[in-house]
């Protein structure tokens, strides 16, 4: 703080001195001019004497400009840093949002079996009083079945909660990842009358990667497809998996609204969305893109407006298979 003040004062002092010198110079110039007029035949070009003065002013002007540019640059750098931070925060909150959606889905999926179990227990108690044991046996079977259903969802949840960053890349069967991603979507999709067609290769090679991240990619793609299918008559979601040379290819295709040519190049950009304010972050595809790239794969889209969309993912086959 003090140093800065000192610097400012010095600069002002230097400026003052320089100004003083300039004034002296101009005075000297006037004298010289007078003198040259008195001297017969001595022709001194006025501009020639004026030149150093102009150059001097120009130098000061330049110096001020550079100073200004420097401080502007510094401010730009700072706001750039801030932008990066808030962007990272937004990415994080988008992840949390999709986690929130996931939790809502899980709650729904667990409450269903719990509801059945609770009712079956109530009925068992009633039938116990009435000594209708054969009916109780039936209720017990129902309870067993529904418990299994709930535990599938819980085990899925446990995996989702695992710390992703520290997890090493493992060999993954993408068919399984797709199936798991569907568990949470199943109810939503059938509620919206979306027909799911799965054409998964039975001899799909493994890929190296992070299960949870890849799951997130598929969940994003399914949720986008679900959105695109909202107002279309034919509601199909087709998922294919197959091998092509050294790659495992996954295609996620829908018969939804499709992507207009004008925005096709933008959909993978962070924050690009056609959803209403507050309904989408526009981060789904950009996060997916990043994840696939981290897996040394590619993700591209084929689509025409009104004709649905097809997202194609290619991931290299794991070397250990």
């Amino acid at each position: 703080m003090v140093i800065k003040l000192l610097k400012e004062v010095t600069i002002l002092a230097v400026f003052g001195i320089v100004l003083f010198l300039v004034l002296v110079w101009i005075g000297a110039f006037e004298l010289l001019w007078e003198w040259s007029r008195q001297q017969e035949g001595a022709e001194i070009d006025k501009l020639f004497i004026l030149f150093p003065v102009l150059a001097f002013f120009f130098a000061i002007f330049l110096w001020l400009q550079i100073r200004e540019a420097k401080s502007l640059n510094r401010r730009l750098q700072i706001s750039n840093e801030q932008l990066k931070i808030s962007q990272a925060q937004l990415v994080q909150s988008a992840k949390l949002a999709s986690l929130g959606e996931m939790v809502a889905g899980v709650a729904h999926e667990i409450n269903n079996p719990l509801g059945v179990i609770n009712m079956a227990v109530d009925m068992s108690l009633i039938h116990l009083e009435q000594s209708k044991y054969d009916l109780i046996e039936e209720h017990l079977r129902t309870i067993k079945e529904q418990t299994k259903r709930a535990s599938v969802i819980v085990s899925h949840l446990r995996e989702f909660g695992r710390d992703t960053g520290l997890e090493k890349q493992v060999d993954i069967d993408l068919n399984k990842v797709i199936a798991k991603s569907f568990i949470l979507f199943h109810k939503d999709l059938s509620n919206r009358n979306i027909e799911v067609i799965q054409q998964l290769s039975e001899s799909l090679p493994l890929v190296k990667g992070n299960v949870i991240e890849l799951e997130q990619v598929f969940i994003n793609l399914f949720s986008n497809a679900e959105n695109a299918l909202k107002s279309s008559r034919k509601k199909q979601l087709i998922v294919r998996s197959f091998r092509r040379k050294g790659f495992v290819v996954i295609e996620v295709e829908d018969t939804g609204s499709g992507i207009p040519f004008s925005i096709k190049s933008k959909i993978f950009d962070p924050f690009f969305t056609t959803k209403k304010m507050g309904e989408g972050t526009g981060l789904g595809l950009s996060i997916s893109y990043k994840i696939i790239r981290n897996h040394k794969g590619t993700i591209v889209v084929e689509s025409e407006e009104g004709k649905g969309a097809k997202f194609i993912i290619q991931l290299p086959v794991s070397k250990s298979t």
Binding site: N111, N112, L114, G115, N118, M119, D122, M123, I126
Partner: peptide
Amino acid sequence: LDKPFDLK
């Protein structure tokens, strides 16, 4: 009624 609920 929120699932799970009691029959009572």
